[in-house]
Amino acid sequence: MVRNNRVATVFTHLLLILGIAVMCLPIWLTFVGSTVTRAEIIQPPLPLWPGDQLLLNYREALFGGRNAPVLQMLWNSAIMALGIAVGKIVISLLSAFAIVYFRFPGRQLVFWTIFLTLMLPVEVRIVPTYEIAVNLKLLNTHAGLILPLIASATATFLFRQFFLTIPDELAEAARMDGAGPMRFFKDILLPLSRTNIAALFVILFIYGWNQYLWPLLITTDPDMNTIVMGIKRMIPSADDYGNWPVTMATAILAILPPALVVIVMQRLFVKGLIETEK
């Protein structure tokens, strides 16, 4: 190391801790907000240490709620996040397999069609996509939350890239061993892709969990809201003090699942993040 100066090291650590403190501050304050009474919030300043209302507030959020119980919204979010992650992975694995291991007329066209989806995020085609979803009777359904979001160019390209690094001879050996394409896919390709699938799963789960605009459009029934978008209805408006503690408890509950995924599967998460951007 170049900088082995003691003072400098201590200083660096201090700065880092300060940075982390600033980064964590909003979450800490949110947590504090979820443990106090409404009265404590309405009378600023907000205490900097948690209160004793934790159980009460979280219970009210989970089972009471202002529109739908948060438990119901958590359930919807879980279905949506899992559906999107699994759906994207399955669909992308299959298309990448077809693109890499077969030559068929129209292959280039398929490749570019998939590429095109990169240029069409939900945000730029809000109204027509909504109209189509309405026509297909997808309003207020889990399928409606999931299906329009599970085409994935990024995941397809990632798997394609990975398949291209698997030596041709492996597929040929499997063919000599009498394995047909689907057998090869199941016995060789899937086991070899395991880490990639897991890493991608972490990223896509978070992506699905954090969706906001699409659930906002497609779920008008509070019982179908996901937690990330449902919380919007729980924000007290400026002239009404509302129930901030319950809203803050909901925010913490919305953060918890994806945050746990990131922390527990940190290595896969980092791998997934870096690979999907390649």
Binding site: G19, N210, Y212, A254, I255, P258, A259
Partner: peptide
């Protein structure tokens, strides 16, 4: 300690 805010949705 620094990477987990990635898990927080923009709306949250």
């Amino acid at each position: 300690l620094l990477i987990w805010p990635y898990a927080v949705a923009p709306a949250i």
